Simulated scan of single mutants.
Amino acid sequence: MSAPGGDETGGITVGPLEFADAHACAALERLLFAGESPWPAAAFAEELRAPHTRFFAARRSSPQHPRPWLVGYAGIALLGGAEPESEVHTIAVDPKVQGRGVGRRLLALLLAEADAHGGPVFLDVRTDNAPAIALYRSEGFENVGLRPRYYQPSGADAYVMCRAAGAGAGEKKENAR
């Protein structure tokens, strides 16, 4: 894999999420998470203002549409003081570009932030989201719990997954043998 900001996905670049992206994020939320209380634009703006969060955007451009548009976003909270930990808040990718490595690139940016912060990384994922679970496992996450009826209003269950502190790329390669 190239550097997290590299472009191997057909005109898609990744970088910091901006306040101007909040409405596009909310629109993508409504598309992807309609049955799960999607975040409104105000929630994204609030998250971007928080000093302990980092959010990234994936944008696509083309010769026909030179102004890049949002096709994905991801956010993480960097928590704790003496005992740091991080929590992935969200990763979302437009269905039109899913399967092209955009989610993996966004996750790589989140994990780089978490590794610099230190401590384990936690996330919640729907138990029926096999592609996301496979992505997280490939990056060193393991199931550590279950949250019954976590997602509302659908009542879908969520796995709690954790990647141990220090489980960066070097350790993942060792564990893969």
Rank of each mutant, 00 (worst) to 15 (best):
E83G: 14
A57K: 05
V144K: 02
G99F: 11
G15Q: 01
L48K: 06
L28W: 03
P51G: 08
A134L: 05
A169Y: 01
R49K: 11
E171H: 04
A169L: 11
N129H: 11
V14C: 14
H117F: 03
N129L: 06
F44N: 11
D7V: 04
G170M: 06
F56C: 03
L31A: 12
V144D: 04
F44L: 09
G170Y: 02
N129R: 07
R177A: 15
F55C: 12
A43I: 11
E139L: 02
E142S: 12
S61F: 07
C25D: 03
G155A: 01
S86L: 05
F56H: 13
Y136L: 10
P38G: 08
H23V: 00
G80R: 09
F19N: 12
R149D: 14
I133W: 04
R126V: 08
H52E: 08
A34F: 08
G75S: 08
G140R: 04
R147S: 08
S61T: 15
P51R: 06
A134P: 02
I133E: 12
H52R: 10
G145F: 01
Q152F: 00
G166D: 10
P16R: 02
K172R: 14
L109Y: 01
A74S: 11
V102R: 06
A3R: 09
A74L: 12
F44A: 09
V102W: 04
P63V: 01
G35Q: 10
A164K: 13
R54W: 05
G35N: 13
A58F: 11
D94T: 02
E85G: 01
W69L: 02
A176D: 15
G140F: 04
E47G: 11
M161N: 10
A24C: 02
F19R: 09
A164W: 08
A132Y: 07
R126M: 10
E8G: 15
E139C: 09
S37A: 11
A20Q: 08
A114I: 02
Q64T: 07
T13H: 03
D94R: 00
M161D: 13
L17H: 02
G168H: 13
V88L: 15
G119K: 02
G11M: 06
G80Y: 09
G168E: 04
A50M: 12
A3N: 11
P120T: 00
S138C: 03
D7C: 10
E47C: 10
V102T: 05
E174V: 12
E83P: 06
D21R: 01
Y150S: 04
A116E: 12
A176H: 02
S62F: 04
A42G: 07
A114P: 13
H89I: 15
Y159W: 13
P40Q: 12
G118A: 09
R67A: 12
T9L: 05
V125R: 03
V88M: 10
R137T: 14
G15K: 00
R60L: 05
